[in-house]
Design a protein around this nucleic acid. Structure first.
Length: 543
RNA sequence: GCGCCCGUAGCUCAGUUGGAUAGAGCAACAGCCUUCUAAGCUGUGGGUCGGAGGUUCGAUUCCUCCCGGGCGCGCCA
C-alpha cells in the first residue's frame, strides 16, 4: 500500500512541475512520526523556490488518498509529510502474512537474473579454519538472500587443486608417511607441518601396508590422494554447517581443458598484452589497476593470476549476469586487477562484485585462542562448531558485516540465556509455538480473518507493524549483501515478541481477542521462522 | 610512501540512496514470578558520533586535511 502513496506523491510532484523528484517514502525511526514519511516537500523547495512547509501544505491539499489506506496526514518538522495507515491496511497485513506463510518475505526484484556466488574456495591443503567459516556462512546467506529476492543462484566452490601448494602438500604427506614407517624424513621447505597430515598418514599406513615397499617416486604418486581427501573433509564439514554447493570447480580442470591457453590467446587477440623484460604483461592499468600485471614470468611459468582469469571467463561463459566472489580481506589488493581484466573483456561494470570478509579472532574463557606457532595449527572451524554448535556458529558469523573484523565470543555463543542473540531469537519462536501447544491447537488453524479492534494493546499493533516490514528488510539486506541487517531485524522482532508475550495474554481472553492474538502469534511465528530459515538456522518449537 | 577498510555509550556493535530528540545488546542501577517457558519482562542513567574545515534548508552519513588502529602494496599463492 506504500506503493499507492508513492504513486500519488509522484503524481502531485509532476503536477507541480517536477517529474522526477527522487523523493523517499520511508518508515520513520520515531513512531510518533507516523507509519510512513516523505521528504518530498523539502526536495521540491529548491527547484520551486518555495518554503518547504508551505509546499507541504500545497502537496497534502492535492493528495487524493483513499481513507482505506491512509487514516491521517500531517506536516511536521522542517517539512516532512507523515502518513498514518488505516486500520484496514493493517488488517490486510495480518491476512497477507498468514496466507503467504513460508513464502512471506520473498520478492521478485531479481527475477530471471542468474547470479553466481563463489565462496570459501579454500586450498585443499588442510582443514578449514574459522576465517573460512565466516566466509562460508556469509556466502551462503548472501546466496539465500538473493534467492529470496528472486535471483537464480549458483553456489560455487573453486578448488585450487593445481600449482605449487598442491605439490607441497603431496610432498608433506609422503614425508609423514615415511615417518610413520619409521624412516627419517622431513617436511619440505614451505611444506605443511600441521598435525592433520600426521593423522592422515597414520590412517593411510594402517590401511595400506604395501606403502612400506614403495620407492620415493611411487610414494609421491600415491600421496597425490592428499588434495582429494582433504577436500572431501572440507566438504563434509561444510555440509555439517548446512553449507551445500551446487558446483565444485577445479583449477586443474580449468587447466586441463585448455582454458588457460584459451584465456591467454583471447587477451593477446584483444591487444591487451605485451612483452617486456622477457615477461608477458597484461594492460590492467588501462582499466583501473595501479599497474600492469605479469601473466607469464621471465622463467616461462605462469602467475597464479592467469588460471584465475581463465576461471572467471569460464564463469561468464556459463551465462551468469553477475558473479559475486567472497574473499578474505587480505586479498583486497587483488580486486582492481581482476576487475580490470573483466572490464577489459567488456563484461560490464556491474558484472563482477567482491564481498570482503575480515579476520576472525576467537575468544574463549576470557582469552584469545591463538594459533600455536610450533605445530602451525589454527583454531579449526571444526573446533568452533564442536564448541558452540551449528546454529550459533552461523548466527555469530552473520550478525556483523563481513568487512569489519570480528571477535567470536565462544562463551557467549554457548550460553542458554537471553544474552545470547541466537538463543533470544529462537526463544521468541519457541514461545509463539508454545502458545499453540498449550492451547492444544495447530498454528495453521489460526486464520488471518480477524477483527483488528480485537487487538486492543499498543503492543499488538507495534508487533504487527514490525512483522509487515520483513520483506523490505530481506530486500535491503539482499541488495547490500549484508545478512546482518536481517539478524538485527530478527533481534528487534524477538524483543517485541517477548514484550508482547509478556504484556498481552492470548489464551483465556475474550473470544475475538483470543482469535486475533492467535493470528498475530501465528504471523510472528511465521516471520521468525522465515528469517531463521533463510539464514540456515533452526526454528525450534520448544527449547 | 601509496591504496583499501575502520574510529558512534564503560564493552561489543547497528544507524535504512543526507533527514526530525543518534539506537540495541551486554555491563550498572531500580522493579516484576497464583496466569500461554523468570531460559523471561519493564524502567533509569550513560554520547563534543576520533579532530578541524567544507558542501547543504539539514551531515554519524558526502568532500578535503589531520590524528589513531587494521590490512594490502612480488615476474609469491
Amino acid at each position: 500500500m506504500s506503493e499507492v502513496i508513492r504513486a500519488e506523491l509522484a503524481r502531485v510532484a509532476a503536477h507541480l512541475g517536477v517529474a522526477d523528484a527522487g523523493f523517499v517514502l520511508e518508515r520513520p525511526r520515531d513512531g510518533g512520526h507516523g507509519d510512513l514519511s516523505t521528504n518530498l516537500a523539502m526536495l521540491l523547495a529548491k527547484p520551486l523556490k518555495a518554503n518547504p512547509r508551505a509546499l507541504a501544505q500545497k502537496i497534502t491539499a492535492e493528495l487524493q488518498l483513499p481513507a482505506s489506506v491512509v487514516a491521517k496526514t500531517e506536516i511536521a518538522g522542517p517539512g516532512f509529510i507523515n502518513f498514518w495507515l488505516a486500520q484496514d491496511a493493517l488488517h490486510s497485513l495480518l491476512a497477507t502474512i498468514i496466507s503467504a506463510g513460508p513464502a512471506f518475505g520473498r520478492g521478485d526484484a531479481g527475477a530471471g537474473q542468474r547470479v553466481n556466488v563463489e565462496f570459501v574456495s579454500a586450498n585443499p591443503t588442510g582443514p578449514l579454519h574459522v576465517g573460512h567459516g565466516r566466509g562460508a556462512c556469509l556466502g551462503d546467506a548472501i546466496a539465500a538472500l538473493l534467492e529470496w529476492t528472486g535471483h537464480a543462484v549458483t553456489r560455487e566452490f573453486y578448488i585450487n587443486d593445481a600449482g605449487v601448494q598442491i605439490d607441497r602438500v603431496i610432498q608433506s604427506l609422503w614425508a609423514r608417511i615415511e615417518q610413520q614407517l619409521g624412516r627419517p624424513a622431513e617436511i619440505p621447505e614451505g611444506g605443511y607441518h600441521g598435525q592433520y597430515l600426521v593423522e592422515l598418514a597414520q590412517a593411510l599406513v594402517a590401511k595400506h601396508p604395501e606403502l612400506a615397499g614403495l620407492t620415493a617416486e611411487q610414494g609421491l604418486a600415491f600421496a597425490t590422494v592428499a588434495p582429494g581427501l582433504l577436500r572431501a573433509e572440507q566438504e563434509e564439514l561444510l555440509r555439517d554447517l548446512r553449507v551445500v554447493f551446487d558446483v565444485w570447480s577445479s583449477e586443474k580442470a580449468v587447466r586441463d581443458q585448455g582454458k588457460v591457453d584459451a584465456a591467454l590467446a583471447l587477451l593477446a587477440e584483444r591487444g591487451l598484452t605485451y612483452h617486456q623484460d622477457g615477461a608477458l604483461f597484461l594492460r590492467t592499468s588501462e582499466y583501473g589497476d595501479d599497474k600492469d600485471r605479469v601473466l607469464r614470468k621471465s622463467d616461462g611459468s605462469l602467475t597464479y593470476f592467469v588460471p584465475d582469469i581463465a576461471y572467471h571467463i569460464d564463469k561468464h561463459e556459463r551465462g551468469f549476469e553477475r558473479v559475486i566472489d567472497v574473499w578474505g580481506a587480505d586479498h583486497h589488493g587483488y580486486i582492481p586487477r581482476m576487475r580490470g581484466v573483466l572490464r577489459a573483456l567488456g563484461y560490464g561494470e556491474d558484472y563482477f562484485e567482491v564481498a570482503l570478509v575480515q579476520l576472525v579472532k576467537v575468544m574463549k574463557g576470557g582469552e584469545e585462542v591463538r594459533m600455536s606457532k610450533r605445530s602451525g595449527e589454527f583454531v579449526t572451524l571444526r573446533d568452533l562448531v564442536d564448541w558452540v554448535g551449528v546454529d550459533a556458529t552461523r548466527y555469530f558469523f552473520l550478525m556483523r558485516p563481513g568487512q569489519s573484523p570480528f571477535t567470536f565470543d565462544v562463551d557467549l555463543a554457548r550460553k542458554q540465556t537471553d544474552e545470547n542473540p541466537i538463543f533470544y531469537v529462537q526463544m521468541a519462536h519457541a514461545r509463539m509455538s508454545g502458545i499453540f501447544r498449550v492451547a492444544g491447537r495447530d498454528p495453521e488453524s489460526a486464520t488471518g480473518d480477524v477483527k483488528l479492534e480485537a487487538l486492543p494493546a499498543p503492543e499488538d499493533l507495534e508487533l504487527l507493524k514490525k512483522l509487515a516490514v520483513f520483506p523490505e528488510v530481506v530486500a535491503r539486506a539482499a541488495k547490500s549483501r549484508e545478512p546482518h541487517k536481517l539478524t538485527d531485524y530478527l533481534e528487534d522482532l524477538a524483543r517485541l515478541a517477548h514484550g508482547w508475550y509478556h504484556k498481552c495474554r492470548v489464551l483465556g481472553e475474550a473470544a475475538d481477542t483470543e482469535a486475533a492474538r492467535l493470528a498475530l502469534a501465528r504471523a510472528a511465528r511465521i516471520v521468525l521462522a522465515n528469517g531463521l530459515t533463510l539464514l540456515g538456522l533452526s526454528a525450534p518449537d520448544r527449547m
